[in-house]
Each structure stands twice: as C-alpha cells, then as structure tokens.
Amino acid sequence: MTPVDAKEKPLREEEGTELIRPKPSHHLLAIKVENKFGVLSRVAGLFSRRGFNIVSLAVAPTEDERFSRISIVVDAESAPLEQVMSQLNKLINVVEITQLHPDDAVEVELLLVTLRFDNKSIVAIQETIKKYKASILEQNDRLITISCADYPGKLDKLESILRDYPIVALQRTGQIALPRLEFLSK
C-alpha cells in the first residue's frame, strides 16, 4: 500500500486527520469495460504480460448494466502511463479509460479488521474507532470486527495503529475513485 512518506496535503479540513495522497508514482485508472465473459482476466492478463505492476484493483457494475468499471492503481515506475493506456485500449472489451490524477479525484477504500481485545485494550480501540469514523460490525467477549471506508492514506494510518493489537484478520479492498465535481462539470 501507499507508503506513509508520501507528500501530505489535507484534502478536507478535519480535526486531526491529515489525509495522504497516493505517491505521484501511482496512476489511477478507471476502465469502463463491457460486461463480457472473462473481461477482468483480460485486463489483469494484459498487466502481467506487459510487465505493468498493479498496486490495487477493484471491479463493480456501473449505472449502465452493460458495463462495469475496473478501478486500477498502477505502479507508474513499471511502465509509462501512455503505454499502459494504449495497450489497455487495444482490448476489444475496454470501452473507455479515464486517467484520474490523484489531485483531481476523490478516492475511497474499505478496510475490515478483526481484533482480539481485553479489558485494557478495548478502551483505546474504541477511541480509535471514533477518531477514524470506523464502525463496529460484530463484537463478542474477545473479538471485535471493525470497518472503515476512507482515503487509502488514512486507512494506512488506521492500520498502523491497529497493528499494535493482536490482529486476527485484516482485509482491504483497494481504492475506487471518481473525478472531483469541478472536473465533472467541465
């Protein structure tokens, strides 16, 4: 995931939460694809075949059921963006590729984590949950499952705090992104 030493610049004015943008060495691509058999494998296959590195990948249906959107974060050092985009464009099922500069996009990722707690640690955990606007999905006398959706950089921070506790399982989705409103209206 995005290293924490990336350039920090708050995107939203919020108490105590500085948000981290992806390192400029990453590109955000939103790839609109036809909802056809094997399309994810074609996109993923192209990346490995051409030696482009994927940092994260998420797929979901779009507002139009004929299409899906694949959100990919690409390691910029592994290939020039132009090559990645034009090679992707050659896939017959790829309809449109939008490159989002991290500065021009809102990005969200989801994190799920199950922690083991005791009477001492639960207080601090609850504070963290509050501070990061996370929510509790399940809890029993020893284990707690938390979810948090936010900018990847913020999840990095949350994750590093939670690593102080015994983690039973942790899962992140990879980010999805949309252009900021100012770019949509243009």
């Binding site: 494998s41 074609r42 296959g45 050659k90």
Partner: peptide, 16 residues
C-alpha cells in the same frame, strides 16, 4: 482455450 490464447490473440470468444 480462451484463457490459453488470451495473450496471443487480438480477441477471442467462447460461444455459449
């Protein structure tokens, strides 16, 4: 076969 030939075809189809 569509999997095997993905990297060596311009496109492929599985007819269902």
């Amino acid at each position: 076969f569509t999997g095997i030939t993905q990297g060596v075809t311009k496109h492929n189809w599985l007819v269902t």
